[in-house]
Nucleic acid binder design. Structure first.
Lengths: 196, 196
DNA sequence: GCCCTATACTTTGGACTCGAACGATTTCGG
DNA sequence: CCGAAATCGTTCGAGTCCAAAGTATAGGGC
């Protein structure tokens, strides 16, 4: 695995590239490894567990949220699953067509959509989740329980830092400027009263 | 941040769902937090640093690889960047159209493609990388240097486990069965002499 | 009842993603 | 010297993903 092995070597090359500028190597290594680990874990779980049930990672996460939390409003499902509402719409469409998920109207608010697993979806999760958890154990087999707790705590610190101070940090960096639209995605429609 | 806060609560609900089956909670928390941290970090870096230079995460990683390693064969760039060859083709097309990357033929092997940064690409990385590293420091600000090293090492263990034993594990799990083709992907073109 | 605003889900546009299939090229075996 | 096998980059199909735009519902003021 040349990628992994090259991290420390890469740091030396970065040093050479930016001799003057001080670089935080430990911090760089943490971020690089978080992303590498996430990719490796996701790929392993997709290949070893999910693909045989024809589930994508995202589809599984969505099912998991509904399984654990029971019938939920779709916005909560999206937030828990860490995807946008727009993405959730498509995922739910797929899962509904496969009979794993059902939709229901909210009794008092017609805007809300309630999502829940079908019986078939329940059965699927009862079957798939133990296999999924077994592979979670496999990918962390190089760590003992104590190291697992430490690792999970360290990662929690990172998540907390971003969630508690990230917004404020972005604002400070951009100094009040607009967040610069992303290149992809739907374009803002030109308004007739805009400056031409 | 309901997602983060709910992890331990979710574990209790999982317990209820699978009372009989033993679940490895620490392992589950590690995997969940790896993915959560990766998403949070990526999103912060995209919003705070990359978007203002109109770069996606993947585009930045590809530029970084070429910047650090210099002119490289495209297959190595894909592997270092952790993306497939097919994805790299598209990313390079975008970056080349923006004048950040140039292609060159390999002098002795006509199959190979050599990639390198243009001067403009070099300038971009000299400008963007320090800002990127500053945000790497920000997202890990909740950890001291020692904790950073520990975290990076723990993640390295996970990556190593998957890279060293993942393939073998997948084979054992599927027990010789075909790896189940992914649902999406290019279909075989019908041949005239196939059974019809 | 009507307007206005806020909120929720859906649709849409564009980039990104994997991995199979494909064409071009090199290397191997004879 | 020629065909087979291997390897490279590219194309293609199906799908994911975000965020802007669009549609529908809810609630307040009058």
């Amino acid at each position: 695995m040349p990628g992994q092995r090259s991290i420390t070597e890469a740091e030396k090359l970065v040093e050479a590239k930016l001799g003057g500028t001080p670089i935080q190597h430990e911090r760089m290594a943490v971020v690089a490894n978080i992303y590498r680990a996430a990719s490796a874990v996701r790929q392993h779980l997709e290949n070893a567990v999910l693909r045989s049930s024809d589930l994508s990672w995202t589809a599984f996460v969505v099912l998991w949220v509904m399984w654990i939390w029971g019938e939920s409003e779709s916005r909560h499902v999206a937030e828990e699953a860490g995807i946008s509402k727009g993405t959730l719409t498509g995922v739910v469409r797929t899962l509904e067509s496969r009979g794993l998920v059902k939709r229901a109207e909210h009794p008092s608010d017609g805007r809300l959509l309630l999502l829940s697993l079908t019986d078939e979806g329940e059965q699927l999760m009862r079957r798939v989740f133990p296999a999924f958890n077994a592979e979670e154990s496999f990918v962390t087999a190089g760590l003992d329980d104590e190291a697992c707790r430490a690792l999970a705590n360290g990662l929690r610190q990172v998540v907390l830092q971003v969630e508690e101070h990230g917004e404020e940090r972005r604002l400070a960096l951009l100094d009040g400027a607009e967040p610069a639209p992303r290149r992809s995605g739907r374009r803002r429609r030109p308004r007739p009263d805009d400056q031409g």
